[in-house]
Nucleic acid binder design. Sequence first.
DNA 1: ATTATATATTGCAATATTACGATTAAGGGA
DNA 2: TCCCTTAATCGTAATATTGCAATATATAAT
Lengths: 110, 110
Amino acid sequence: MGLVKSEIFTHQQNLLASFAKVLGHPARIAILQHIFKSESCICGDLVEEIGLAQATISQHLKELKTIGLIKGNIEGTSVCYCINPEAWSSMKIVLFDFLNKDLNRESNCC
Amino acid sequence: MGLVKSEIFTHQQNLLASFAKVLGHPARIAILQHIFKSESCICGDLVEEIGLAQATISQHLKELKTIGLIKGNIEGTSVCYCINPEAWSSMKIVLFDFLNKDLNRESNCC
DNA sequence: ATTATATATTGCAATATTACGATTAAGGGA
DNA sequence: TCCCTTAATCGTAATATTGCAATATATAAT
């Protein structure tokens, strides 16, 4: 085991969980916050900014890229990362929709 | 390794990641959706509803309880679970604040 | 008391994640 | 061309997660 049984869940549930999972590590949160903080793209000062090894940062960037949240543009010898606005928006929609489920509830029983 | 270096991140980053992490599994999403769908508390029809073993569901419930998102009330021989509104609200605040970071940006460079 | 029902816990196997050193690949500049 | 810089990838060790059978616990009903 150690293997998620994705096939027993809906596409929506798996999608939501995937987005949440990629946000489920402080280094990836820090990377995204750093991209937002900088006005333009961020070009690889992440390693010194966050205190992790270059290989580790690169691995986290890969996960963010795989799910589509960030894009990387090669710029000479370095790579420039920025948010993918479409993916970010669709993640927001999926998450907001879920998180706002409680608005439909008027009472809690316990 | 296999161990998150939490000490190099801020409390806010770790908190946000913790909430996202617990949402990062489709079974836990399904459990929360089931609690929301039912009008009152949900008393352990989760095992048949979701297709996982009883021990596995119990483990996922434990994680949701540990982070405070749900509460369990013993009711006779069964246990009644419901959302903890305070914890849910604080999770929403933390997540919304992060997800809305893009509103401050007027342009993307790539 | 005994049995039935419902949930938690334990123990374990399979797989995933995190982190990092070492290496590789690709440009840029001397 | 030969280095230097930057980032990706590989390999690997340590730890975490997922899932389940078996067992334990606790209450209800007979």
